[in-house]
């Protein structure tokens, strides 16, 4: 057993980025414990979806109307499914750790007792979620490729736009989760009343314009719709004005920045209250 009495024996503190990376390192280690379910979910979900909706509904649509936007239904559907997977995995990887950190195991309080700050913890959790989003999106994209739903040239634009949307959404959910004090029903609520409606009403399975105007607003505020628009534009050339693309990019960015700013402040406040 050695002990020190001097102040200088250990590094006193680390830069903001390095602190966040320590938290990310921990989060990835924790995720590694869940690797089997993460991989099974990451690959199983797209296989099931593409087999049933993509191929089944796709056949019906292609036979009856010759696809959507002039491309086969599967090609139309692929960017939306990819973005949805990114958003859902991002949500998973910020909500559960945040509830565990503040409520279930109070791990964030242990972290905040070290030289880390609340903002570093928030950054670190989001960065780890981003790693998970990239992994999920890349795996999903590979399955899409195997099903012939995407060309290999779409790898970068599709994975990039989906990841972008997934991380921006995760930042917003990070801020919201950080405000949850009673977790009863929070996770079920967000899945049933946020993620599912988002999935169903964001022009995922048919163009948003097919919806009654009274419901189209759901798509306009949905990060999934914006990501899907960008993905369709970049993958098969769905007509999109550059300003519309710019609005989508900016909307998602605003969501991400707002989320992270609020999350950082909320983390620090809650851990020092």
């Amino acid at each position: 057993m050695t002990t020190s009495t001097g102040l200088a024996s250990r590094p006193a503190r680390h830069s903001a980025w390095r602190g966040a990376l320590r938290v990310t390192e921990y989060r990835l280690r924790n995720m590694w414990k869940w690797r089997n379910s993460i991989i099974a979910f990451g690959l199983g979900n797209p296989v099931l979806f593409l087999a049933s909706v993509g191929l089944g509904v796709g056949l019906l649509v292609d036979q009856n109307s010759g696809g959507v936007d002039g491309v086969p239904y599967l090609v139309f559907l692929a960017p939306a499914l990819l973005a949805a997977a990114a958003i859902q995995s991002g949500q998973d990887e910020v909500t559960f750790p945040t509830l565990a950190g503040f409520i279930w195991q109070k791990l964030f309080f242990a972290m905040r007792a070290t030289s880390l700050t609340g903002a570093q913890i928030a950054d670190g959790v989001l960065l780890a979620a981003a790693v998970r989003v990239v992994f999920t999106t890349a795996a999903y994209w590979l399955v899409l490729l195997l099903f012939g739903a995407v060309e290999w040239t779409t790898a970068l634009p599709l994975v990039a736009t989906s990841t972008y949307a997934g991380v921006c959404w995760a930042a917003l959910m990070l801020a919201i989760s950080a405000n949850v004090t009673n977790e009863d029903g929070f996770l079920a609520f967000t899945w049933r009343l946020v993620i599912m409606p988002m999935f169903l009403f964001s022009g995922t399975f048919y163009p948003l314009s097919s919806l009654p105007l009274a419901l189209q607003w759901i798509g306009w505020i949905s990060p999934l719709w914006h990501a899907t628009q960008l993905g369709r534009w970049l993958s098969y050339g769905m007509p999109l004005e550059p300003w519309q693309a710019a609005v989508s990019v900016a909307y998602l960015l605003a969501m991400g920045v707002l989320g992270l700013v609020v999350a950082r402040r909320r983390f620090e406040r809650r851990l020092t209250a």
Binding site: L7, R10, P11, A12, R13, Q105, K106, L107, F109, A110, A113, T114, S115, L116, T117
Partner: peptide, 16 residues
């Protein structure tokens, strides 16, 4: 952060 770098904290409830 500088102070905490030189503290050991054992909270009332184990947050392992």
């Amino acid at each position: 952060p500088t102070i905490r770098a030189h503290l050991g904290v054992v909270p009332q409830q184990d947050n392992l």
